[in-house]
Every structure is written in C-alpha cells, then in structure tokens.
Computed example of a mutant assay.
Amino acid sequence: MQTLWVCALALQELAGPAAETAETATDVISLVTRTGLIEQLVLALLVIFSIVSWGIVAYKAWAFRRADTHTRQFLDVFRRSSKFSEVQAVCRSLGESPLVGLFQAGYGELNTQLRGATGDKPATTAARPTLKSLDAVDRALLRASGTELAKLEERVGFLATTASITPFIGLFGTVWGIMTAFQAIGAVGSSNLAVVAPGIASALIATAAGLFAAIPAVYFYNHFTHKVRGFAAAMEDFSLEFLNISERNFT
C-alpha cells in the first residue's frame, strides 16, 4: 500500500506541470477571444509578420548554408586549376556561391580584351595576348560584387522592418485595449480588481505578441547581416586574387 501511495504522488507531480501548461494555454486563448475587433486585427497582423519572418529565416539559413558549401568547393577548384577555362567548367554546378558571379564577370572581361588584342595582330604573330586595361577588369569585378551582395541581402531587410515595427503595432493594440477596458469600467461604475484585470490582461496580449514577433527577427537580422559581411570580405579577397593572377599572366 505504501508503494502504491508513493506512485500515486509521483504521478500527481508529473501531471501537475502538464495540467498547468494546458490551463495557461486555455487562459491565453480566452484572453484573445475577449479582445475587441481592433485588437484582434492587430494580433492577426502580428501573426502575419511573424509567419513571414520565420519563412525568411528558414529560406535564408538554407541559402547561406548552400552558399558556404559552394564557396569552399569553388575556391578549392579555383586554386587547384591552372587555367580559367577549367574553373569556368564547374561554375554551373556551384552557382550558389557569390564568387561564381565575380569570376564569370572577370573572366568575361578578360576574354573580351584578349580576343580584341589578338584580333588586332596579324595571323602570323605568335606573341602572348595582353590586357588593354586591368582597371576595366577591376570595375567588372566591382559591379559583380554589388550584384552578388544585393542577392545575399534580399529579404533580410524585412526582418529589420519586423524587428522595428511590430513592438509599436503591439503597443498600439495594448493602448487601444486599455482605452476600451477603461470605457467598460466607467460603464460598470466599479474599479474592483475583478472588473479591471480581465480587460487589462487582454490588452497586454498585443504587446506580448509584438515582442514575440520582434525578438527573433532582431536576432536573425543581426546573424544574417554578419554572414553577409563575411561573404563581402570573401568577395573582396577573391577579387584581389583574381586581379593578381590576371596581372601576372596577361600584362
């Protein structure tokens, strides 16, 4: 009997947190259902912001992971290859790397200048083709770098918008709910806590929802911005490496 009594106490302790969790969830739902139309519209807007933000987070995390992987593979091929044409052959399979866009821009400018240089010479001339302008190659790399950075930063700005605007939207819903609650208190003519508390609690749910949408958006915006800066540094290093190789071999 003593063993059964101990087991019953243990089961009651285990069931306690689950029951409290279910009760809390029910309380939150009841708070939402007690809100007015304006507060419910505010909550719906905050939910939309939150869903879109999490979708962007999932997509950008996947995209940056692939970009990291393709960048490492591309650099390995680029540094092992003896000809740019060999690197060009793998660009299609590693297209998620921003370095691929830089390489193709620089390689295209090189080909344009080298074809023009050989076209101006007689057919019997066997001289090594040279670049007309290394600065033109540098400008092509800079343009491509700007394009690749814009691709990396795409949709990340929405996280900053979510982080900055959703707390204010939630605060608006709270202020409106408190105004409505005080009007109801005035109509009842009583300031009893049992009358005041439900309306204030329902109003504060909007602020909580705004913070729930904003806090993850702030974190992931800073995280993705850091990743973009890392890619920007990698592109700058690659541009210098590409220019050095071009200068050694074609000038």
Results as ranks from 00 to 15, higher is better:
4 L>G: 03
5 W>I: 13
5 W>P: 00
7 C>Y: 06
8 A>G: 13
9 L>H: 05
13 E>Q: 10
17 P>W: 03
17 P>Y: 07
18 A>Q: 07
20 E>S: 08
21 T>Q: 14
22 A>M: 07
24 T>W: 08
27 D>E: 10
29 I>K: 13
33 T>I: 02
35 T>L: 06
36 G>Q: 01
37 L>A: 07
38 I>F: 02
38 I>P: 07
39 E>T: 11
41 L>I: 12
45 L>F: 15
47 V>Y: 02
49 F>A: 08
51 I>L: 14
55 G>C: 11
55 G>M: 09
55 G>D: 03
56 I>F: 02
60 K>Q: 10
66 R>T: 09
67 A>R: 13
73 Q>L: 15
74 F>L: 15
74 F>Y: 07
79 R>C: 05
79 R>K: 12
81 S>W: 06
82 S>A: 12
82 S>Y: 05
82 S>H: 10
86 E>V: 01
87 V>D: 09
89 A>G: 07
89 A>S: 12
95 G>Q: 03
96 E>G: 04
97 S>G: 04
98 P>S: 03
98 P>R: 02
98 P>V: 02
100 V>F: 05
100 V>C: 11
100 V>I: 12
102 L>F: 03
104 Q>V: 11
110 L>G: 01
112 T>L: 13
113 Q>M: 11
114 L>Y: 01
114 L>S: 05
115 R>Q: 09
116 G>S: 11
117 A>H: 13
118 T>L: 15
120 D>K: 14
125 T>P: 03
127 A>G: 12
129 P>R: 06
132 K>L: 00
134 L>P: 07
137 V>I: 14
137 V>D: 04
139 R>M: 09
143 R>C: 01
143 R>A: 13
145 S>V: 00
149 L>N: 10
152 L>I: 05
154 E>N: 10
155 R>T: 14
155 R>P: 15
158 F>H: 08
159 L>M: 08
161 T>W: 12
161 T>L: 12
163 A>C: 12
164 S>T: 06
165 I>T: 15
166 T>S: 14
170 G>L: 08
170 G>R: 05
171 L>A: 01
172 F>Y: 13
175 V>P: 13
177 G>S: 13
178 I>K: 11
179 M>W: 06
179 M>H: 03
183 Q>A: 09
186 G>P: 04
190 S>W: 12
191 S>L: 15
191 S>D: 07
193 L>S: 06
194 A>E: 12
199 G>H: 11
200 I>S: 01
204 L>Q: 04
206 A>T: 14
214 A>F: 03
214 A>D: 07
217 A>C: 10
218 V>W: 03
222 N>V: 06
222 N>Y: 12
223 H>I: 03
226 H>T: 09
231 F>P: 05
233 A>C: 00
234 A>S: 13
234 A>Q: 15
235 M>P: 06
237 D>M: 02
238 F>Q: 06
240 L>K: 04
242 F>P: 01
243 L>C: 02
244 N>W: 01
244 N>F: 05
248 R>S: 10
248 R>C: 01
249 N>W: 08
250 F>G: 07
